[in-house]
Amino acid sequence: MQFVEFGSFRSGHRLQWWNLLTILEMDSLPIHEESVAILIMHALLQLGPNEMDQHPSDYSWCSESHQQLLEDHFVDEFILRLNHRLDDCELNWHNELVLVLVTIITMRIYTICKETQEDRVKELILKCRKVGEKWIDLISEGIQSLISSDLKEVNTLREKMVIIAIACLLTFSTHPERMHCILSSDAHMISLLRAVATRHNNLTLNKHQANSIYLVKTLLHWSEHILVTIQPSIAALLKRNSYGSLNQFSVIYWAYISNRTHFDGKWKKRKTDLYDGWYDGQFESTKISIDCLKGTFLVNGVTVGF
């Protein structure tokens, strides 16, 4: 039965979203498996075909493959089922690909759906992000409890943290017109910084590189693309909020100042290039630098945090 479901999933570009809805409802394919995740991702990211209509509508930009997402009742059904999926896996961080796939589906819906559904899908996005952050905290605690000699298990957990951090970064993957809803506050910015730092640190520490897996390699490239494209939004948000989120993140990340209730790093963007991610601050005589693109945190030019 699964073979039939897998083989027929992409049979007709107008049917793919309906097939996906059926999979989520019937649990007919194991979405935690890499092959299934890749199959679904290919369908979600399909570009065409474009509608050949002599009378173009306001939504003529949307290809035939994704026009179901312009129907509110169809989006309602997806929100319901995706919420159930998140609830089912919230306490189980072992199936990290489920979170990745639910996040990708949610972001695709958010990017295409009508404004009438924007707020509801936004709530689901923030829920995906919250679950990912919770899993990262749980795995971090698990790593600390392991003996240092159990490197294989530690590396396995670090690989999971990389994938979960990517899932968190995917919650920022939409077009600029809707970015203001999901990257609009210091809390959102801190979530972004935590995710990019987690990805960077665990890739650096993992002896068995996670990007040896095809899907993970693809997701890594995708997350890098997302981070590049949202740098102008990051710069605007940081400037608007007087770099408050960089102060808060520094207190969270750098143990030396973690007991401070107030910290002002006097941050400045290093370059005028909107797509450069470096920001430099000062703590007493110490220079602090954060790269919002790569996730690097430097104190006097030396990496800290792991």
Rank of each mutant, 00 (worst) to 15 (best):
I125M: 00
V98G: 03
Q282C: 02
T272R: 15
K239G: 05
M52I: 15
T156P: 12
E51V: 06
R158I: 00
L20A: 08
F172S: 12
A43W: 02
R194W: 12
S8G: 09
L220A: 05
I182W: 00
L82H: 01
I164F: 01
G12K: 01
L157H: 01
S60P: 07
K268Q: 14
T198E: 03
F249C: 08
R270C: 08
C113F: 07
A165N: 03
N83H: 07
I104M: 09
T198S: 12
A197P: 11
K217A: 10
G12R: 01
N206G: 03
C62Y: 00
G7V: 08
I38C: 06
L86A: 06
C113L: 06
A255H: 15
S145G: 11
P49I: 00
K294F: 06
S191W: 10
C113M: 08
R10P: 04
K271L: 14
D76Y: 00
I38R: 05
I288G: 07
R120Q: 15
R129Y: 06
E141C: 09
R129F: 06
V4C: 12
N247I: 09
N259V: 10
V75I: 00
M107W: 10
H94R: 09
G295N: 02
L15C: 07
I230Y: 07
L220F: 03
F9Q: 04
R270D: 14
N241S: 04
L29Q: 03
I166P: 02
H66V: 08
V121H: 03
V4T: 05
R81A: 07
I136Y: 08
N300E: 11
D150R: 12
Q16R: 08
S233I: 06
T156W: 09
S57G: 03
E25A: 11
S63I: 05
A187P: 08
F172W: 04
R260E: 14
S258D: 13
R129K: 12
E64I: 00
L293F: 04
I139D: 05
N92C: 09
R178I: 08
N247D: 15
R194A: 07
D72R: 01
S60V: 07
S212F: 14
T286Y: 15
C181S: 14
G277R: 05
K239R: 15
N50V: 05
L157S: 04
K130H: 13
D27S: 10
F6S: 04
W61G: 05
E224G: 00
L20G: 06
W93F: 09
S148W: 08
K271W: 14
A210F: 04
F263Y: 11
A195M: 13
Q144E: 09
I143C: 08
L70Q: 01
T204V: 06
I234R: 05
Y256G: 13
L47W: 11
A210E: 04
Y110K: 10
I112S: 00
S65H: 09
I230P: 03
E25G: 15
G301M: 05
H66C: 04
H180G: 10
H55P: 01
T296I: 10
H84F: 13
V98C: 11
Q248V: 07
I136V: 05
I143M: 04
M52F: 13
E115Y: 09
R129W: 02
K239N: 14
L29E: 11
C181N: 10
L97W: 01
I182R: 00
